[in-house]
Design a protein around this nucleic acid. Sequence first.
RNA 1: GAGGCCGUAGCUCAAUUGGUAGAGCGCCAGAUUGUGGAUCUGGUGGUUGUGGGUUCAAGUCCCAUCGACCUCC
Length: 408
Amino acid sequence: MSFFDITHKDNRSSARVGVIRTDHGDIETPVFMPVGTQATVKALTPEDLLDLGAEIILNNTYHLYLRPGTGVIESFGGVHGFQHWSRPILTDSGGFQVFSLGLGKLTKQRKVKHDLLAESLAEFTVEEVALKNPKILAKVDEDGVTFRSHLDGSTHRFTPEISLEIQHKLGADIILAFDECVPYPSNRKYALESLERTHNWAKRSLETHKLNKNQPYKQFVFGIVQGSVYPDLRAKSARFIGGLGFDGFCIGGVSVGEPKSEMYKAIESSVPFLDACKPRHLLGVGDIDDIFEAIERGVDMFDCVSPTRLGRNGSLYHSQASRASKFRVNILGEGYKTQTDPLDPECSCYTCANYSAAYLSHLYRADELLAYRLGSLHNVHFIVNLVKKIRQSILNGDFPLLKQKWLS
RNA sequence: GAGGCCGUAGCUCAAUUGGUAGAGCGCCAGAUUGUGGAUCUGGUGGUUGUGGGUUCAAGUCCCAUCGACCUCC
């Protein structure tokens, strides 16, 4: 029994069907994993997640390290026992927080124009840019990253060694190398500089992982490909990371503001250099069209906050919504105030099976807590099961048809 | 009954000595991709209670009227 087996390949694209085996159960790929940053998929219980078909969830190292702290989680024998989830878990390495607390923070603030950031990065060092922007909470150096907690401002430091040691203590089934996610846009000089650093960190992450002897059960470690939107850097990164001996791979640094076409190019530039027998995870994606495009290009795993975040904000997936509206409708829209039918007649989730759109609309307008739960339930169900349908379509040989049906 | 005070957007309120009526919230719409249950971006919205008058010009000054509130008898 190997960690990952490919059971079927699409003959018209790079799409494939497989199974990942962990001590906490199997995962059928392609798979979408809901994000439970703080050891909880917001508003949902583990039973909810099982009911709607989730096979694996993502937890975040940065958040759990800061709160409740690794010690508390260790006392439960790891993240599974702590959150009452006995199926597989993947932990992020904290690398993304280097981005979201650091330079990426600038691109997320609409005030800072993209070209301004690009100019800054061309003209100044990262340290100089950070000095000019006191809101930045993280600073990267060759050895690791120093950051301030978003909770209390206290100073902390992550290195590849520290991140992996924390992840060993958290005890997820799949853990990630510590990387730097560069903002978009980044000039080539910075992207390359950061890439060398991420590669160095990948080696150190893997070495640290090999030293870990006291695993109660098997932990697999994935390396992360970076390289921004530069195809040659992506290829360089995939060759390097692909050659280190990781159990699987992530493609990172996407969905950070770049055009979708650039993201697809980044996937295409990376996949050919990654061992075809190992699973590939596209970090932080995502949108329904992106999932189709990525699976077609050989991606096996996805995680994204969008179904839960959008669910809490009333943006709900709908089988009859157009691609232009990203397959979603806004339940807060005026028309739903009086709709006695369920939100989506074609949906089999708990929410659509039991509640009218008008009731949902009311819950959202009244800021009732049940809105978060019913909305998240619906959205996660929608995405998880769409990916299951895609999996089946690959087995049936009609994946291109299904993709065309959705994306035309 | 007498005196006082106030009526401006759906709501709470702004608007210099008279000079193009604004804000917050709400409402409507959009954004949201390895999560700060957050945030951001637009948009709709008014015969300034009503009717007269003074003035080049009135939310603002004058008169009447309707309504709310306060005090006193």
